[in-house]
């Protein structure tokens, strides 16, 4: 069901994501100060760090929901569309960008389901509108995906009739419907009631196990520890620690990573993923 790449090499050429020296500034605030991140096929990378450290901004830059001020971003070996003429993209570049984005699943903290469309329509909209998939085929795939996230019985419901956890699972199904080669999760459980966090994390864990390439910005330390192949700690617009979950959580080397982890792990790994 998931088009994960065959290879598992980690060199930059085969990387699904290759961001180099990315700078981002909002007004006078430097949000990203030269961040480099490379993600190999089938890899699950969790990005953690204090609020305002630039995690979400980095993720949004990878999909060009935010433009970058310097650096390069390649997705599947192809550079993301860049600024031209006064900050505006040309028509061709805009269409190319849209095509690139359609390969990248993105899950928002606030779900952003389309409230005027049913669950099924939310999931089938992208394939039908962007890929030209037939109604029947799109519905077939959508129902499969809804079954996978445990919501096949909610196909006819409207988003407002669902709980937060259910909405987020629909959002994941909506992203998967485009058969992306990369999934980006922007704090997918931060807006959820504690009791529905687990059902979303379970779905994500299943994706990771199936070999989906994923970048997950999260505050769920338990999830990061158990599911991530690599954990990246960000602070103040830079990556301050990077390594396997064991390395990062048990033997962090940088002071800022130690400080952050000491604070979040003060009460142990908060939630079981």
């Amino acid at each position: 069901m998931i088009d994960a790449a065959e290879t598992t090499t980690t060199d930059a050429a085969a990387a699904v994501v290759d961001a180099r020296d990315v700078y981002k500034r909002y007004g006078t605030v430097d949000v990203l100060k030269g961040v480099s991140l490379s993600v190999a096929p089938r890899e699950t990378v969790c990005v953690i760090g204090p609020s305002g450290s630039g995690k979400t901004t980095l993720l949004r830059c990878l999909n060009r929901l935010e433009t970058i001020d310097a650096g390069t971003i390649h997705i599947a070996g192809e550079q993301l569309a860049t600024d031209r003429t006064g900050g505006l993209l040309h028509r061709r570049a805009r269409q190319h960008l849209a095509a690139q984005r359609s390969q990248i699943g993105f899950v928002f903290q606030r779900f952003n389901l389309w409230p005027n469309r049913t669950v099924l329509d939310n999931v089938t909209f992208g394939p039908r509108r962007v890929r030209g998939t037939s109604r029947e085929e799109a519905a077939r795939v959508a129902l499969e995906l809804l079954e996978r996230v445990g919501l096949e019985d909610k196909a006819a419901a409207y988003p407002m009739q669902l709980s937060g956890g259910q909405q987020q699972r629909v959002a994941i199904a909506r992203a998967l419907a485009m058969r992306p080669s990369l999934m980006l999760f922007d704090e997918p459980t931060s807006a959820l009631d504690p009791e529905t966090v687990g059902e979303v994390l379970d779905v994500m864990r299943g994706l990771a196990a199936d070999g989906m390439t994923m970048i997950v910005v999260t505050h769920e330390m338990g999830f990061a520890r158990q599911v991530a192949d690599r954990v990246v700690v960000m602070d103040d617009g830079a990556i301050v620690e990077e390594g396997t979950p064991d390395q990062v959580f048990t033997t962090p080397t940088s002071d800022r990573a130690k400080e952050f982890l000491a604070r979040v792990l003060a009460y142990g790994v908060s939630r079981e993923a």
Binding site: L97, A98, R101, R110, N112, L113, V130
Partner: peptide, 17 residues
């Protein structure tokens, strides 16, 4: 909400679409 537009952009629609 801007999130509605963003959700459309990330599945591959252009801003006009």
């Amino acid at each position: 909400d801007d999130g509605q537009t963003e959700a459309a952009l990330v599945v591959g629609l252009t801003e006009d679409q």
